[in-house]
Simulated assay, not measured.
Amino acid sequence: MKIIRFLLLALNGIAVIQLLLTYCTYCFSPHTIWYFEFIALGYPVYLVINIGFIVFWLFTKQKRHALISFIFIALGYNTLFSFIQFGTTKKPTKDTDSFTLITYNVDAFNCKGWKNRPKVQKDVFTYLQQEQADIICFQEFHYDTKESFRLLDSIIKNFNMQHKAMYHFHSIPRRYFYGNIILSRFEIVNQGIFEFQKKGNSGVWADIVIEHDTVRIFNVHLESYRLTPHNISTIEDGVHSQKHHVKEYSSITKKMRNAIKNRYVQTEELIAFFAQTPYKIFLCGDFNAPPYSNTYRNLKKASHTKDAFLSAGHGIGGTLHWNLPSIRLDYVLYPKQWKAVEYRSKKQNLSGHYPISVKICRN
């Protein structure tokens, strides 16, 4: 029994070390020490394991051992509450002037194969009809005039979104484009684009007049891990064939290291751009980084914004669609002079990401 108890305590110790390594992402730049953010991606799993240890020890004679995981979870309360919120969705009063903003990485509508793109676009359109957004920020948007259903045309026609700002990463004139797009019911008085290191990631911004006030909306897609479906399947399964096991995980680790380092550079580029921005900032999009990362923390600080999930969200805020505990990679950050009164993220199998819909009004 003593050996079993020792082994359980050792495993519990490893679990709390994983929590501590996650917390280190707040202290070290990924430019110099990248692996803390890599380890932090597993935080939801570490949290579940440590909660399991707490429950286990409470049903033994050594109940005091439950304090081990409890104390270390409590030490990272900022990390915990960036992952899960226990409040309820706020409701605006009837006389509140508000608008709804959606951010959605639609993965080029390709999650079910290119032949099903029109069907996926129709399902996304149904979702948008339910939300009745005033501003939509799409990442990895796909448009093809040859397809039977074109989401962009339907949005403009049915939602009266006549104003748009677009970045075409790939395009064929008068036929096809792929990139980021902002659609708005409100007037866009200025717009621009920026490319990050010309690596395929990009951002688009638009100065939008909302109730006589001009704000700048940033729609960004930061460096992704560029994982293949096979990579993702390997991570989800946890075990691969012995022949390719080491090689496969080495490839995944290398991709993640490169993504984390590249995102640091992209974050610095964005921060420099924020300094030249004359208006209050709304920062939306797919950061490809969790809320306990250096990327998230620095962007939120430099843009002088608040996180809509922390203000109005509830439950687990994961936006990544896969077969492991979800991670929050997509965000709506808004100026401190405004407030988020509703936050929704619909779990649907239309992309590798879930959409975020936020209702925002003035303080």
Rank of each mutant, 00 (worst) to 15 (best):
A133R: 03
I182L: 00
D237F: 09
L222R: 11
W205K: 06
V220N: 10
K122V: 15
I193F: 09
R174L: 09
H163S: 12
E140K: 04
Q139F: 13
S241I: 14
I181Q: 06
M166A: 15
I193Q: 12
D144R: 03
I155C: 07
I210R: 01
S148Y: 07
R174C: 12
H240V: 11
V220H: 09
A165F: 08
R226H: 15
K199G: 14
M161P: 04
F196D: 07
H221A: 11
S148I: 10
K146L: 11
N158W: 09
G203Y: 02
R185F: 04
Y127M: 08
M161R: 05
I210D: 04
E147V: 07
K122E: 15
T234F: 00
F186I: 00
R150K: 11
I155P: 06
E211N: 13
N219H: 14
N201R: 10
R226V: 13
K198E: 14
V239S: 12
T145P: 05
I193K: 13
Y127C: 07
N180V: 07
F169D: 14
T145W: 03
Q129D: 13
N219R: 10
Q130D: 12
I217F: 08
I235T: 00
V220I: 12
S184I: 03
D213F: 12
L183S: 06
K146Y: 12
I182T: 08
K157L: 06
V215D: 10
L151E: 00
I182W: 02
M166L: 15
I235N: 04
G179R: 02
R185K: 09
K164F: 11
S202P: 00
K199S: 13
R226W: 13
T234E: 00
K157E: 09
K146E: 11
P173W: 06
I210E: 03
A206T: 08
I188G: 07
E195T: 15
